[in-house]
Nucleic acid binder design. Structure first.
Lengths: 340, 340
DNA sequence: CTGAAAGCGCTTACAG
DNA sequence: CTGAAAGCGCTTACAG
């Protein structure tokens, strides 16, 4: 089916009886070409089935590949697929193609992907940093290719500043917790995933702040509010089990679910137990507005995060200078009923 | 930050005082290299910060780029992101990188993406065909690069057979419709998206078959069952409006929602009206098991479709011959309660 | 406006 | 086991 050797620009030049350079200009859309030569080249390309080879065209240093790399945790996770789509959209607008890869939250695999993408000579990288980097990967990568971080900042090992796009995790968590406190809850539990995750640490800090502010405000009038913290919501099942425990203990009267797996697990536990507690989740999810009562959430503008990251990267690629900046994007508290 | 000219293999060879070829062997993992030279090369690479240039390495004809292209409708759609993740996983297992792009169901953009990916010299393509191709894009593409179709077959304009991975859309629709008929429904409506979509036509055909079989079986005993068909469920809102109409008319006593936007729209219309009809959807979705009653669906094994497509493509790339085959994967009827 | 030459970073036969 | 030469498909100065 496929011929042994695909036709090259040289073949086209020979067939059209013109110089190689003229074919190159034709293919690259130069306008000032003799009408007749132009037609002969077009015919030769058609007849030979010639396809321009962008990979060959881009090996010359300084010439960009017009490909951007994206490293996320897992493309099947809606959070990351929306992010990827948003990055892709910006790339498309600027004539770039996207190469995306899932690190699966594995630092070794993350490192491998960075190296591979750099070897592939992408023009730049949008990266969700690995959970626990054991090497200063960002510092060594930034030397080779422009890079923007998203969702999480660099780790403590890094000795370089990088452009970063974050959501206001702490602020959102504070508002979510405060909403339940305002509705009369007193023993609000934090239900999150591993505190190795930057986003979880931030959300936990925000939760603590809300409790402290309620104390100061004398909102409850009966002494300090004790935090109740679980970082065991690695999966929906784990989260459901923890919440079942909350229900059984009788010591919890509201739940701040710090990611959407936690929120869904809580919903399952409520359904199983036949009774519910006030609930606010972090990150919106498809089912949230469809159940009864609809689940209140802190919603990140994921598409905007992707757009800002991609536009920042494209700016860097285009040569924009300036010190690295961290964008912290606002989140939205979506009150739908479950907070009371 | 980035030096003017990145170091090349030649620079490494000079710095290490060895031939270019030896550096090439070192970089490509050849084992039979003099220990001392090997160490000098390693040190030079480290000192210079050399990175292998895969783009340059792959321009030689016959040498693969180890990159696979994927064209889907929209990466932010969970159906496609799960498909993409599955393709990515197989690629990873075989040392390939994935370049994915969203066609947005636009034939022109689809064509552009195919051309761009071919120009980029991907080793192969996994493609969701465009809804309404006005050119024989598949026929002309297959000449340049191995290709596997997924979710939909080639259009009528194509004069070539291509490996294809499909779900049993018609069979699933028949079973979904039959389940509601069996539960006593008599006026089951089909609620789908544009019939320009292959999958919609197949699901509609399956729906008709279920009605015809019920007639033959004398399931209702009161004459032929009349089909009620709407292809207006382009969005959740549209679907909700159509279902609101069904409820108001009193002429519909069950709904087969032929995609998950239609199912979600139906749920919203039920919630608004305060009463529901038996419902079965096509394609599982996150909220389906979480609502009450839980929504019954026909579930495709999307991950398996991606895997089969990717493995077929990698086989083609590896040189496996044989006539194109169409894989039609089974779907699963997930009965959760809403069918009655 | 057009072409022959040199070169991009790398690998592939070919000698040693 | 190692290296100098030729070549991959293309673009970039440089002449005309």
């Amino acid at each position: 089916m496929r011929s042994s050797r695909p036709p090259t620009m040289n073949d086209v030049a020979a067939a059209a009886g013109v110089g190689l350079k003229t074919v190159s200009r034709y293919v690259n859309g130069a306008t000032n070409i003799n009408q007749e030569l132009s037609e002969r080249i077009g015919a030769a390309i058609e007849a030979l089935g010639y396809r321009h080879n962008l990979a060959a065209a881009s090996i010359r240093p300084g010439r960009s590949s017009k490909v951007v790399g994206l490293i996320i945790s897992d493309l099947a996770n809606p959070y990351y697929s929306v992010l990827a789509r948003s990055v892709e959209r910006v790339c498309t607008e600027h004539g770039y193609l996207l190469m995306s890869a899932s690190s699966e939250e594995d630092a070794g695999r993350h490192r491998l992907l960075v190296d591979r993408l750099v070897a592939q000579r992408v023009d730049g990288l949008v990266v969700v940093p690995p959970r626990q980097a054991t090497t200063s990967w960002a510092t060594s990568t930034i030397v080779h290719v422009p890079m923007v971080l998203v969702d999480r900042p660099t780790g403590p090992l890094e000795s370089v500043e990088v452009h970063t796009v974050l959501a206001d995790n702490a602020g959102g968590a504070t508002r979510a917790t405060a909403a339940m406190l305002a509705a009369g809850a007193r023993r609000v539990a934090f239900l999150g995933d591993s505190l190795e995750l930057y986003t979880m640490r931030e959300r936990l800090a925000g939760y603590h702040r809300a409790l402290a502010e309620a104390d100061l405000g004398g909102a409850t009038g009966t002494g300090p509010i004790e935090p109740i913290v679980s970082d065991g919501a690695h999966s929906v099942e784990d989260a459901a089990a923890v919440v079942a425990g909350f229900l059984a203990s009788g010591e919890v009267d509201a739940v701040f679910a710090a990611n959407n797996r936690a929120a869904i697990g809580a919903m399952q536990a409520f359904a199983t137990a036949g009774r519910r507690l006030p609930l606010v989740g972090f990150d919106d999810f498809e089912a949230a507005p469809l159940v009864s009562p609809a689940v209140s959430v802190v919603a990140q503008n994921v598409a905007l995060m992707g757009r800002v990251a991609a536009e920042t990267l494209l700016g860097l690629i285009a040569g924009e200078a300036g010190p690295p900046v961290t964008h912290t994007l606002d989140v939205r508290l979506e009150l739908r009923g479950s907070e009371r």
